[in-house]
Amino acid sequence: MRNLKVFIFSLMLYLALVAPTAEATVHFGGQITKIIGCINFGVIYARLGPPRGGPYIWSPTITKTYSFGPPSHVGQWLLGNAGPSYYCIERIYPLTVHPGLLILMMGSSR
């Protein structure tokens, strides 16, 4: 009985953590742990830490940016939602690319 409870709790926890990936847009939020300025049209790659981290890409043409502007430094907090997969091209020779989710709208800390 106890094992069943633990299993159900674990399943619920897993679903709660996995649920964001099953949405049409992904809600994210976390502190920047790595930031890269990409060569493709002013795109910025930001890897976020918890609580809802991962690789995200800010685009000057697509992303609707609220205060306090685009990702700028490690330690900055970002919050928003992201859409389909996108590529940040860091270098051409050798070709170095970073895939991430394209940020649709976001806000940031100072």
Partner: peptide
């Protein structure tokens, strides 16, 4: 329209993993 998109499960969160793996 929305139900159709959901049915196909073209989920942005999952596809990032697939695209990352390719590289």
């Amino acid at each position: 329209y929305g139900s159709t998109i959901k049915k196909y499960a073209v989920q942005f969160g999952n596809q990032n993993k697939i695209m990352s793996d390719l590289i």
